[in-house]
C-alpha cells in the first residue's frame, strides 16, 4: 500500500477573510486566505478546502477571486464549497482554478443535482459534504441523521442510506462532518466515520472535532477515513501540518513526506 492518507486544512472564508467559529458562533479572524494557503502548502498540506460561509450571495464574487489568487501560486488540489446550488456555480469555481467542488445543502434538496454535476464535470471533481448528527441513544447501534443549516435543521434522512445514494449518483468523494463533534475538540465521531467509509466505494474525508494530533490519527486508524480535515488546530498555530504528519508516521500511517 503506498497511497498516502491525506491531511487537509480547511479554511472557512467570510467576505474574503479566513475565519474560525466554534459551533458556528464566536467567529475569529484567522487571516488572509492566500497567505494561509501558501503557508499550508509549504508545511506539506496534501490539499486545501475552502468553505465560503459568506451569508450574502452578492459577495460570492469575492470567493471566486480568492480561488483565482490561490490557484495561481499553490499547486496542490483545491476544494471549494459553500453556496453551490447550480451547475453555473460549479463551472465558475472550476474556471477560477478549483479542482473539486463540495455540494452540501443543494444535494439534500435536490439529489439529482449531484448526478447532473458528476455527469457534466466528472465525478473526480464532485465532493458531497454530509453533515450528520447522532440520533441513536447510548447502547443502541449507531444511527445518524442528515442535518442542514449548520446542524440546525433535521431532514429525516439516514446518513448511511444517503451516502450510498450519493456514491451511486456519482459523488467522487464524501466530506463527512459530525455535527455533534464540530468545534468541540474532543475528536472525530469515529464510529460514524467508519460506518460511512465502509458503506461507500469512494474516499471519505473525516471532519469535525479535532483537538489534537491523536484525533487525526484515530480518524484514519479507527474511523477508516482516507483523509482527515481540520481547521482550528492549524489556523491558530497549535500544530503545524508537518508535526501532524510526523505524528501520524509514528502511528504507522503512510503520509506524504515533504
Amino acid at each position: 500500500m503506498s497511497l498516502a492518507k491525506r491531511i487537509i486544512p480547511c479554511l472557512d472564508v467570510d467576505n474574503g477573510r479566513v475565519v474560525k467559529g466554534v459551533k458556528f458562533v464566536e467567529i475569529r479572524d484567522a487571516g488572509d486566505p492566500v497567505e494561509n494557503a501558501r503557508r499550508y502548502n509549504q508545511e506539506g498540506a496534501d490539499e486545501l478546502t475552502f468553505l465560503d460561509i459568506t451569508a450574502s450571495s452578492d459577495d460570492r464574487d469575492t470567493m471566486v477571486h480568492v480561488v483565482e489568487d490561490v490557484a495561481r501560486e499553490v499547486f496542490i488540489p483545491l476544494t471549494v464549497g459553500g453556496g453551490i446550488r447550480e451547475l453555473a456555480d460549479i463551472r465558475r469555481m472550476l474556471n477560477a482554478g478549483a479542482d473539486k467542488i463540495s455540494i452540501n445543502t443543494a444535494a439534500v434538496f435536490k439529489p439529482e443535482f449531484v448526478a447532473e454535476a458528476a455527469d457534466k464535470f466528472g465525478s473526480q471533481c464532485i465532493v458531497v459534504a454530509v453533515d450528520a448528527k447522532r440520533v441513536s441513544t447510548e447502547g443502541e447501534p449507531g444511527r445518524w441523521e442528515i442535518f442542514t443549516h449548520g446542524g440546525r435543521k433535521p431532514t429525516g434522512i439516514d446518513t448511511l442510506e444517503w451516502v450510498r445514494k450519493m456514491d451511486a449518483y456519482g459523488a467522487g468523494e464524501i466530506l463527512l462532518t459530525s455535527m455533534d463533534r464540530d468545534g468541540t475538540k474532543i475528536g472525530f465521531d469515529n464510529e460514524l466515520t467508519r460506518a460511512v467509509s465502509e458503506a461507500v466505494r469512494v474516499p471519505v474525508i473525516a471532519s469535525g472535532g479535532v483537538g489534537n494530533l491523536q484525533h487525526l490519527a484515530d480518524g484514519i486508524l479507527r474511523g477508516k477515513a482516507d483523509a482527515v480535515l481540520a481547521a482550528s488546530i492549524f489556523h491558530f498555530g497549535e500544530y503545524r501540518i508537518s508535526e501532524a504528519k510526523a505524528f501520524m508516521r509514528t502511528q504507522g500511517i503512510e503520509v506524504r513526506d515533504d
Binding site: 500500500m1 503506498s2 497511497l3 498516502a4 473526480q124 468523494e173 469512494v202 474516499p203 471519505v204 482516507d226
Partner: peptide, 21 residues
Amino acid sequence: GDDHRDQGGAKLKVPHMGWNR
C-alpha cells in the same frame, strides 16, 4: 473494479485519489 482490494484483502477506494508514489 467495484471490489478493488490490496494484496492483504483490504478494500481499496475507487477512485484512486491522493498522493501515491
